[in-house]
Amino acid sequence: MSESATETVPAKKPAKVKKAEKPENSIPRGQPKSNRPWKTPKQKFSKIKKTVNRLSFEKKTALRDELRYIKERSKEIKDKRKEDAVQKHQRRVENAERRLANERRSEVVQVIKNPAKLKRMKKKQMRMIEKRDVSQVKVV
């Protein structure tokens, strides 16, 4: 046998088959009206293939249960926040009332028995005067 017969020839790889381009892509496009050449030509909505993957009954029920749980939990959180806000407001009102009552109790009151005194008072002194129900306040 000859030397050429003993040599192994590397096997040629088959040439890659190019995918056929879609006919709409092969047509050269002119300049669009908007001057935006990078925009791709749009396809009609009716031509687009829409596939709907339906969920199984078990998955649907599981999803429904999960959504129900999330809604309940969020409702609980909202209710708790609202309740906290109401309680805080109530406390603030009670504290304000208590503070006002304490101020009234600690006031030093002087009853003006002579109304002519009011006529002699200056404007600034008149502003300081406040009317009180004497029956509720202790007179010092």
Rank of each mutant, 00 (worst) to 15 (best):
Q43D: 13
E103I: 10
T8M: 02
A20L: 07
R29T: 03
M121G: 00
L55C: 05
N114C: 03
R99V: 06
N114K: 07
A5D: 07
V108I: 09
I27D: 02
I112F: 11
R132T: 14
A62I: 15
I70C: 00
M121T: 01
A85P: 03
K59R: 05
N114A: 04
K12V: 11
D65Q: 13
A11K: 14
V139M: 05
N35R: 11
K49H: 09
I27T: 05
N35M: 10
E24C: 07
R81E: 03
R98I: 01
V86T: 02
K60L: 06
E3S: 02
A85M: 13
P37R: 12
G30P: 05
K47V: 15
N102K: 06
K33W: 11
K82V: 15
R91N: 13
V93C: 04
L118K: 08
T6S: 05
V108P: 01
K113Q: 06
K82R: 12
K119V: 07
P14E: 10
I48E: 07
Q136A: 09
K124T: 14
M121R: 01
E103T: 10
L55T: 03
R64W: 04
R104D: 09
E3W: 01
Q136D: 15
M126Q: 13
N95E: 11
V9H: 10
A85S: 12
K119A: 12
R105K: 15
I70H: 00
A20K: 14
V9R: 09
N25V: 06
P28Q: 12
S106W: 13
